Computed example of a mutant assay.
Amino acid sequence: MTDEMLTQLGMQLGIPALILFLMFIIWDLAKEAKAGKTGMIALFVALGVGMMGYVIKVILQWQLEH
């Protein structure tokens, strides 16, 4: 296994795992703050924008390569 293959595997498995963990943290933060439905949506939108930007970037890169 080359360094490039290991890096690619880490990007394909590590980043989605990190994103899922961050979504759990946002959910737990909203639950502990008793934010309610509107507050939870606001937290996911405000804190999830950066993660969504990364996901969109990956999709666009894949689309342009194929």
Score class of each variant (00 low, 15 high):
Met1Gln: 00
Met1Gly: 11
Asp3Thr: 14
Glu4Arg: 08
Glu4Thr: 10
Glu4Ile: 03
Met5Ser: 13
Leu6Pro: 00
Thr7Leu: 15
Leu9Ala: 11
Gly14Gln: 14
Gly14Lys: 14
Pro16Gly: 09
Ala17Lys: 06
Ala17Glu: 05
Leu18Thr: 08
Leu18Ala: 14
Leu18Val: 05
Leu20Ile: 08
Phe21Asn: 06
Leu22Glu: 07
Leu22Asp: 04
Met23Leu: 12
Phe24Ser: 15
Ile25Gln: 11
Trp27Met: 13
Asp28Pro: 00
Asp28Ile: 02
Asp28Asn: 06
Asp28His: 05
Ala30Phe: 12
Ala30His: 05
Ala30Lys: 07
Lys31Val: 05
Lys31Asn: 10
Ala33Glu: 15
Ala33Arg: 14
Ala33Gln: 15
Ala33Met: 14
Lys34Ile: 00
Lys34Met: 03
Lys34Asn: 15
Ala35Arg: 08
Gly36His: 12
Gly36Ala: 13
Lys37Ser: 09
Lys37Gly: 07
Thr38Lys: 09
Gly39Pro: 00
Ile41Gly: 01
Ala42His: 01
Ala42Asn: 03
Leu43Ile: 01
Leu43Arg: 01
Phe44Asn: 06
Phe44Gly: 00
Val45Ala: 10
Val45Gln: 04
Val45Cys: 09
Gly48Leu: 02
Val49Trp: 00
Val49Glu: 00
Gly50Thr: 01
Gly50Arg: 01
Gly50Asp: 03
Met51Thr: 09
Tyr54Pro: 01
Val55Phe: 12
Lys57Asn: 06
Val58Met: 06
Ile59Phe: 13
Ile59Gln: 04
Leu60Arg: 09
Leu60Ser: 07
Gln61Gly: 01
Gln61Ser: 10
Gln61Met: 08
Trp62Lys: 03
Gln63Asn: 07
Gln63His: 05
Leu64Asn: 14
Leu64Met: 11
His66Asp: 11
